[in-house]
Write a protein that binds this DNA or RNA. Structure first.
Length: 249
DNA sequence: AGCATTGTTTCACA
DNA sequence: TTGTGAAACAATGC
């Protein structure tokens, strides 16, 4: 599930129900999810601290702590979500903070590809996909000979677009996902930027990256919900990609 | 049984 | 050197 909209939802949840609470204990025993930290390292750094802010760029979250404490970086990976004050889940809670009021914030993640780290490295993230300026977007997205889909999914170029959102955006903008990025015109890049913002807004409102108009048709033998043409399917940028060969040029 | 999967990182290669 | 694509990572669902 997690792309930018899900991450923003998690951030808002933490901002609403996590801030101001004091960490009494930390479940950091999953050394894969907490890598490169050893078990106990996050606990030692965080116990006694109060959560003071919840922030996000793209799909990466980080929480600030009081009195000069470290930032706690969280990433939802392929299947993670944040739950607060819910019954603990034995298998799928890969990391958790217990608060001194008895409550609990957990990273619940079936696939175990989520992350919890101290002082996350944000230096390799581009601007948030929904906030990139027109100049940033043109300069970053319009560069390189690789397919445009790979470009908008590159978190160092713009942060937050994953596979489902990328297909939706390109379909809305009527651009062929295989087009070399540096072959798109300025107006096309501007249209793509508008499609990114619209798709993010829509997904935020509707509850996730899977709520786009194209999504229900992203399957073998799917058809374009606009024109009815059979959708094409191929592996682009390492991910399964669906597009309308009649409309996307 | 085998394959696919909404994410990221690393590595081989051009 | 820079960029690109494939594979690895873990675990689950079809």
């Amino acid at each position: 599930m997690p792309e930018l909209p899900e991450a923003e939802r998690a951030r808002a949840l933490i901002a609403d129900r996590g801030l101001g609470r004091v960490i009494a204990a930390v479940e950091d025993g999953d050394s894969y999810v907490c890598r490169p930290h050893a078990p106990g390292e996050l606990a030692a750094a965080l116990v006694g601290r109060r959560l003071t802010s919840a922030n996000r760029i793209g799909k990466t979250l980080w929480l600030e702590t009081d009195r000069g404490g470290p930032d706690l970086g969280l990433h939802l990976g392929m299947a993670g979500r944040i739950v607060i004050d819910e019954e603990p889940h034995e298998r799928w809670d890969r990391f958790a903070l217990t608060f001194d009021d008895g409550g609990r914030l957990a990273l619940r993640d079936k696939r175990r590809l989520g992350r919890a780290v101290l002082e996350p490295d944000l230096s390799r993230l581009g601007p948030d996909a929904a906030l990139a300026t027109r100049a940033e977007f043109r300069a970053g997205v319009g560069r390189g000979a690789g397919p445009i889909k790979a470009r908008i999914m590159d978190q160092a170029v713009i942060a937050g677009v994953g596979n489902l959102l990328a297909d939706e955006i390109l379909w809305q903008a009527r651009i062929d996902p295989r087009r070399p990025a540096n072959q798109l015109s300025g107006p096309e890049l501007d249209a793509l930027r508008r499609a990114v913002r619209a798709a993010v807004r829509h997904a935020l409102r509707e509850g996730g990256a899977h709520t786009g108009a194209l999504n229900p048709h992203r399957e073998r033998d799917g058809h374009c919900p606009r024109c009815g043409a059979p959708l094409s399917r191929a592996r682009i940028a390492g991910r399964t990609t669906y597009w309308c060969p009649a409309e996307q040029r």
